[in-house]
Design a protein around this nucleic acid. Sequence first.
RNA 1: GUGGGAUUAGCUCAGUUGGUUAGAGCACCAGAUUGUGGUCCUGGGGGUCAUGGGUUCAAUUCCCAUAUUCCACCCCA
Length: 404
Amino acid sequence: MINALRGMKDLTFEESQRFVHIVTTAIGIAKKYGYNYIETPILEETKLFKRSVGESSDIVGKEMYQFEDKGGNDVCMRPEGTAGVVRAFVQAKLDRRQNEKFKFYYYGPMFRYERPQKGRLREFHQFGCESFGEASVYEDFTIIQMIGDIFSALGIGYKLEINSLGCTECMPTYRQNLVNFLTECQDDLCEDCNRRISTNPIRVLDCKNEKCQSLLTDSPKLIDNLCDSCDNDMKKLTQLLETANIDYTINTNLVRGLDYYNKTAFEFVSSEIGAQSAIAGGGRYDKLVEFLDGKATPAVGFALGIERIMGIVKMPEVNREGYYLGAMDQEAIDALFPLASKKRLTNKVEVEYEPKKLKAHLKGADRVNARYCAVIGEDELKNGTIWVKDLVEKEEYTISQSVF
RNA sequence: GUGGGAUUAGCUCAGUUGGUUAGAGCACCAGAUUGUGGUCCUGGGGGUCAUGGGUUCAAUUCCCAUAUUCCACCCCA
């Protein structure tokens, strides 16, 4: 028997229904906010992710499905969705269309070569949105509100954490201050953090090591060192969230794992799903389009992890639907098919090919969750009729096959 | 990549201090005077006890390796 690869899962029955329900719900809401579907390739040049996600990130540093294709190209299975969408945006020259706004949603598989555990797979699926051309913090608010709408529609409780990562004006000064602070206490910081001081000092803030965290209580906080523009945006965002009754906490250590974020960063977390508690994350990335050779274009986006929320989605009740057709004698089986194709114009129909007793057919109708059980028995075959039972109302009647 | 737990029927799990035909519940199939379901009752089918080695007269049980999975670290959706 050949099994699926480690960290890769098949979804069937209830699980696949949950998956589809999440995606269709998210799509419905994204469309209400004016988003259009974008489909981009799963395979991209490795360079794309190195330049966008950042070489200092774990995702690029050690988790990529990277290989050389038969043409000698260095390629990667996408580890996240934003890079590909931005590449497509630039390639389609949408960055040249000044003052136009573009809003895209996508969903599909992402690949990271990690050790699997609950809520962490090697092939997993994200639903995401990217909004291009809108620099206003109102858009940051709107996108957070949209995610809130999606989780509400799915019956999922969450906590929202926000932070500001500053911009090219305030971040470099802050970064230097932080490096100075970290260098002073570097002997007490963990091995990873010592490495981060030179590669990506902001990530030190996110370190899970308790000793590091205790040292960081006195560290300079970016939120206290924002430039006027970033500070105003942050204040405006919190004000908008409060007016909209969206609860949030400011997490000054929320830095996001990907290098391209600036200004607003946010994360939705659930306490119901174990250690991998982030269910959606995103933020503003005003420099990424430029970074990928486009004209400077402000952008903000997010992704939510479909597998992460599959277990906590409240599924709508499934009602009995359609028809189950069966016969009690071999000679009557053929008569089922014209009836089935007629009914299928408007209904879900399942046909049993083996003759069975009435009781077995009723059970069969229950099993496929049909609303109606329709059976041709000895009498019905003789009279050209069909017996129909409404399994919800428990009403039954016999009618001519021609009016079925 | 590091550390720890797990793997027995389709599913959830017992069990064998190493011994001949490995159990339960659910699910499935079939009966219950032959045409009335989702609840009862009776019966039935279904397992290379994860895979590959090793120890032993004998391994599902002990040992090793591999795979998968779960938990933690790490990281992130």
